[in-house]
């Protein structure tokens, strides 16, 4: 009955969101796929060129460099963030003094935007590098890379920690008690009970950190700007750079083709995660 009555009201309930969704996502998405097969500088003059944009991606060696750098970055940052966040969550679910204060402080960097984060750390890291006599962020791609890892860890450990704490608090207390009665030591409770019980949280956090690492843009732009000579560019910044910072009629089409490839990579990660989550649910 409710369904039938509100069905007639679709111009009020569904239409505004659906229309905005078409303007803000669906149409740009479809159009973007079409444009990846075209050569254009402005949208009024578009020539269809087939797959040649995709072929040209391979010739642009900044793309393959950015790709492998991003893969390394996403995996490394994901491991560091998850291990740190889990250890902190484990300690904070014990009844130590000041847990709430610690939790509040660790989470705080999450609320600061990527651009501002980048400049905060640029100031700080350059100061440290200079006192160590090392090349500054803009001069060394290695330092820039590690700078981004430190920045992203500082930003996201708190977020993942919150998810792990929620997971750990949901582990039933009598299960742990039962294990202790049976003589399990704290390592055994950790590896045999706590970690298997919070596997859903582990999957979520791994997925979130991997995609965040892959999609990272703002922090990359403000911390290193891709310097030196595009060597610290991650994929998202490489695409932006191809679009807006290069002159020549071919670059916008190539940029759009890169964006499609980027999108496909993210979809593969998402599907892998979905598969992993559902297969675990079946087992339980």
């Amino acid at each position: 009955m409710v369904g039938k009555t509100i069905k007639k009201y679709w111009p009020i309930f569904l239409l505004p969101t659906a229309a905005a969704f078409c303007i803000g996502f669906l149409w740009p998405f479809v159009w973007g796929i079409y444009l990846s097969f075209c050569q254009f500088t402005t949208v009024s003059k578009v020539t269809f060129v087939g797959f040649s944009n995709y072929a040209k991606i391979m010739l642009d060696n900044t793309f393959s460099h950015a790709f492998w750098l991003t893969v390394l970055f996403a995996i490394l940052s994901s491991v560091i963030i998850n291990v740190m966040a889990f250890l902190i969550a484990l300690a904070l679910t014990k009844k130590i003094k000041g847990t709430n204060v610690f939790r509040t402080i660790f989470f705080m960097p999450n609320l600061i935007g990527g651009i501002v984060l980048g400049y905060i750390w640029q100031t700080l890291l350059n100061g440290i590098l200079m006192s160590l006599g090392q090349p500054l962020l803009a001069l060394s791609a290695t330092n820039g890379f590690w700078g981004m890892i430190i920045l992203l860890s500082w930003q996201q450990i708190g977020y993942m920690m919150i998810i792990y704490i929620a997971g750990l608090n949901n582990v039933p207390g009598d299960l742990i008690e039962a294990a202790q009665v049976d003589g399990a030591n704290s390592w055994q409770t950790l590896f045999r009970i706590k970690i298997p019980m919070i596997m859903p949280s582990v999957t979520i956090c791994t997925f979130l950190t991997l995609t965040n690492g892959f999609k990272m843009f703002d922090q990359n732009l403000s911390l290193t700007g891709g310097d030196p000579q595009k060597a610290s560019q991650l994929l998202a910044l490489n695409i932006y750079d191809t679009f807006y910072a290069r002159s020549g009629p071919q670059w916008k089409g190539i940029g759009q083709a890169k964006a499609v490839v980027f999108f496909l990579i993210v979809v593969v990660i998402a599907l892998a995660q979905l598969r992993l989550t559902t297969s675990k649910e079946v087992q339980q």
Binding site: K7, W10, F25, W27, F217, F262, F263
Partner: peptide, 28 residues
């Protein structure tokens, strides 16, 4: 509540949009 075909398509498109990185649509 309505759960019609259009509603379902709209819902799955919404979920799909969460995966798409912004760079994919930024220019268009």
């Amino acid at each position: 509540r309505v759960n019609s075909l259009i509603a379902k398509i709209f819902y799955y498109l919404c979920i799909f949009s969460m995966v798409v990185p912004f760079q994919m649509v930024m220019f268009t």
